[in-house]
């Protein structure tokens, strides 16, 4: 499934096409300079797909391709006989119901996500990540939906796989929001009501909220039978408190101000911040939610790769668990 990218691609974007390094990864700085979100997503996904052949992780395409070569033990019912007749090769053809994943991308659009010190904000990074995932999943024919929220759900596009839906998702992602504070409780409750059918939920947020409020919401999703993956998007300065001089710091969500000298406050900040991060990680592990912390300075395809690896692992775990049952 190809979106009409070439028509939309502007000459400015063509000039800004990022060079791929030897590893085939796209520099995040260069990527973010591209104005078109769709183009950004395509670049990541295409690079990723082409890199797949060279990658050592070969086996996971089972989940994401429509065809796979027949191996011993597969049910011969699923052999694509037409392909066998044409090319004398055996491929397994998966049924749509079975192969298609229902995935909802849940994006935090609150004001704290507007923070950024690397030339772009966490929000832009998160949107690109979501667009990349959407593009990738749609490319495989999976049904993708979008939920964006701040203190309440702002946009909801149900998961669909039909042509043009990807474009709607991208448009919804590009729409600016006037969100204020992060509140996961209310949006996730709304989400649980909206998404009845079980599927994959990908949460992209900075999770800069008290953990005691986050935990019940995540637990509720997990209990509803959804498979959840969490991307904690952070700016490097948020981890290290790397500011040159003392200043009045203003909270982007509450507009509260306090005077702080980063040199003096750094130690306690890092302690408290990493305590929060590890607590979040522990909560996710306990609830069976895959958690990955991404810095906005890191390349996007790395995030994608990590996501797929984790999914493969959890899928395996589930299969094993399902077989044992």
């Amino acid at each position: 499934m190809h979106a009409p990218v070439s028509a939309a691609r502007s000459s400015a974007d063509q000039q800004a096409m990022p060079n791929r390094g030897m590893t085939g990864r796209v520099d995040a700085q260069a990527l973010m300079r591209i104005r078109s979100l769709e183009l950004r997503a395509r670049i990541v996904v295409e690079g990723f797909l082409s890199g797949l052949h060279r990658s050592p992780y070969h086996g996971f395409s089972v989940e994401f391709t429509e065809y796979r070569p027949y191996t011993q033990g597969d049910d011969p019912r699923y052999l694509d006989w037409k392909v066998l007749a044409r090319s004398d090769r055996t491929y397994i053809k998966k049924f749509e119901d079975e192969t298609n994943l229902r995935c909802h991308l849940v994006i935090d659009r609150s004001r704290s996500m507007e923070f950024g010190t690397v030339g772009y904000s966490k929000s832009e990074y998160a949107i690109t990540l979501a667009a990349t995932l959407a593009h990738f999943l749609a490319h495989q024919g999976d049904a993708v939906g979008l939920v964006s929220f701040d203190e309440t759900v702002r946009d909801y596009l149900p998961a669909r796989s039909r042509p043009g839906h990807l474009r709607q998702i991208l448009l919804a992602l590009e729409r600016p929001t006037g969100g204020r504070s992060t509140d996961l409780v209310a949006p996730l409750e709304q989400l649980a009501r909206l998404v009845k059918k079980r599927g994959l939920l990908v949460l992209v947020s900075d999770f800069l909220a008290p953990l005691e409020r986050l935990e019940p919401s995540l637990a509720m999703l997990s209990a509803a039978g959804h498979e959840a993956a969490v991307f904690q998007v952070l700016d490097p300065a948020e981890i290290t408190l790397d500011f040159p001089s003392s200043a009045m710091f203003e909270d982007m969500e509450s507009a509260r101000t306090l005077h702080a000298d980063p040199v003096a406050a750094r130690k306690s900040y890092i302690e408290r911040f990493s305590a929060h991060a590890s607590a979040l990680q522990a909560v996710c592990a306990r609830l069976g939610i895959s958690h990955s912390q991404i810095l906005t300075s890191e390349p996007l395809d790395l995030a994608l790769l990590e996501f797929l690896q984790r999914r493969k692992r959890t899928a395996r775990v589930r299969r094993v668990a399902g077989g044992a049952a």
């Binding site: 507007e114 800069l208 009045m248 909270d251």
Partner: peptide
């Protein structure tokens, strides 16, 4: 000097 920051919850 004023600096906008995402969250002050960890800052003293």
């Amino acid at each position: 000097k004023r600096t906008a920051f995402s969250s002050l919850m960890f800052l003293s």
